[in-house]
Design a protein around this nucleic acid. Structure first.
Lengths: 315, 315
DNA sequence: TTTTTTTATAAGAAAAATCAATCGGTCGTT
DNA sequence: AACGACCGATTGATTTTTCTTATAAAAAAA
């Protein structure tokens, strides 16, 4: 059994197709066929059920793939240990970021990070929390930035900052005159929300539900961006909640509609997530410290109440 | 980097000598030299400091060896997973047992186990707890039986039985007339102890110390076996404590000197230990269930108080 | 110094991994 | 049913890698 064989197995398991897996691993398809057969012979089991289309893992194949991922991860870590020893910070690094953090946080630290660690080839993807978790587990992402706490078995989370919710209340709205908002003022029926799938939306829903217990309703007005939500609010279709960083680059003419919450303000916890194997830990640490550095100037809130980003299942 | 190379590195690291390592791995010495050099070239570091005699690991070499052990263990586990799937229970299995458990427990389950799992080649070694822990960590033992709780980072423990302490009090002793002993009756100065290094000795010391706080004294009368302790007690040199199973095959004429403790009786917890990687788990489970089966008939104590087997450090 | 021990090197043999080409089976389409 | 597309297995040649024998070189022991 070789590490190469295990990598081949992983590639085929992921692509469910020998030919595609061969391309990904930069070998020809017969190479994959033979090496995987050799491994199967050695172990005297079948890893793949080739009668199914597309190809499937057998029961035992599934277990082997899990363990193979383990081994390959641990093996990759050798290079990592060496890098660390040499003080080398570089190589490809794949970072996932949730959509509601991406446009505000990224411009704040990216230039800074690239200057400090020019040898790191950052590949950043905007992904929903759910996909981020999958990809972290599969090793397709090296780290991610998302709202926490998620408390997942194989994923570690380290908080970066706490970002309060800020209300955007148009002129003609009932709450417009209220100086300091409290959570109990909120009404989910009057709230303009992001589309389903955004964890910020789930956070807002959770926040409003701490107040009263709503039925699971269908919301008619939803949108994919905060920009649109603000425009809808201006049209008098309700109020909305924004994450604090988004309120920094709002039009001056609209700033007067922003209402902060009374302390402790509800807030989301934004963390850097990584797999418990702590692969490429030195780059993760470099990222974390860079972000922590730039964020310190922008966000200084301490007394906040953390709102869970997880959707509550209907009972 | 290949798994074979990592195994070679481990062999050389353990033997501190290429030639001996070559014999152990059943290859010639040049093979080791070349493969290890290849790995060093690939990683662009030196794993061994060849200027020292005997050969030594470099700093980074040390880290790599630790990780290599990890990888090789995880790799071995693949075969294990396959065995489990096939329901195969067999192969070599190295079990460590502490001296105070060995002579009583072994004859109880060994024949039974060999009959049930004839394909397992059991290699049993009598070792002190300290050595057991080392060997489990290094992978030289597959499992061990020792007194717990030890609460070690990389070693899991699963209790097999609770074995009460039984006092052996000779005729002329002050406590001879006491019907049901309590811990507060014990006096460490009057206690015949096993030699240093036995965890049962530490257990007895801990037990007596829960009573009063003793200085760390030197004990003049110590011995390596319970047989001798009993003989010394008969000579009127003090009393002693025995683990329950040892009291079963004591001479009939001496049985009258055995005194059980009042419930909850102090007891040692005897567990099966194994590395957290759970290698050869199906054999470990087979062992555990076999022992649990035979022990159920012999030990039925429930209401006991577990005494730590760890030596207390002098402050 | 000589001998022994130990690791490195060189060269060739053996084993393996890989590739290009091709086969054979399955599936969907006409 | 026939055709073509797709996909994994097979074959045989080629390259690469691994291992061994033989030997050199260096260090330690005698």
């Amino acid at each position: 059994m070789t590490i190469t064989q295990l990598k081949y197995v992983l590639a085929v398991a992921e692509n469910q197709n020998f030919t595609k897996a061969a391309e990904k691993t930069f070998v020809t398809q017969p190479t994959l066929s033979m090496q995987i057969q050799k491994l199967e012979d050695e172990l005297d089991i079948l890893i793949f059920d080739r009668s199914k289309k597309p190809i499937e893992l057998t029961d035992i194949g599934n277990k082997i793939v899990t363990q193979a991922r383990n081994i390959v991860n641990e093996a990759n870590r050798i290079a990592d240990i060496v890098d660390q020893q040499k003080g080398f910070i570089g190589g490809e690094f794949k970072l996932g970021v949730i959509p509601t953090v991406m446009p505000t946080l990224l411009p704040m630290f990216l230039r800074n990070f690239i200057n400090r660690y020019p040898k790191v080839k950052l590949k950043i993807e905007e992904l929903p929390t759910e996909t981020i978790i999958e990809r972290l587990n599969e090793g397709h992402l090296d780290a991610a930035i998302a709202a926490t706490p998620l408390q997942l078995e194989n994923i570690k989370e380290r908080p970066l900052y706490y970002e309060p919710f800020v209300a955007y209340i148009p002129e003609n709205h009932a709450l417009h005159t209220v100086q300091k908002l409290t959570v109990s003022d909120l009404d989910l029926n009057d709230m303009l929300l992001l589309e389903d799938g955004h964890c910020f939306r789930d956070g807002v829903v959770n926040l409003c539900k701490t107040n009263r217990n709503y039925e699971d309703e269908t919301f008619s007005l939803e949108s994919g961006s905060f920009e649109t939500l603000i425009r809808l609010a201006n049209e008098g279709l309700g109020m909305t909640l924004l994450p604090y960083l988004h309120t920094l680059d709002i039009k001056d003419s609209e700033k007067k509609y922003l209402h902060h919450f009374k302390e402790p303000a509800p807030a989301r916890e934004v963390s850097i997530l990584y797999h418990k194997s702590e692969l490429k830990m030195q780059i993760i640490e470099a990222l974390r410290s860079t972000i922590a550095g730039v964020i310190k100037g922008a966000i200084t809130f301490q007394n906040v109440e953390i709102i869970s980003p997880l959707p509550q299942k209907p009972r």
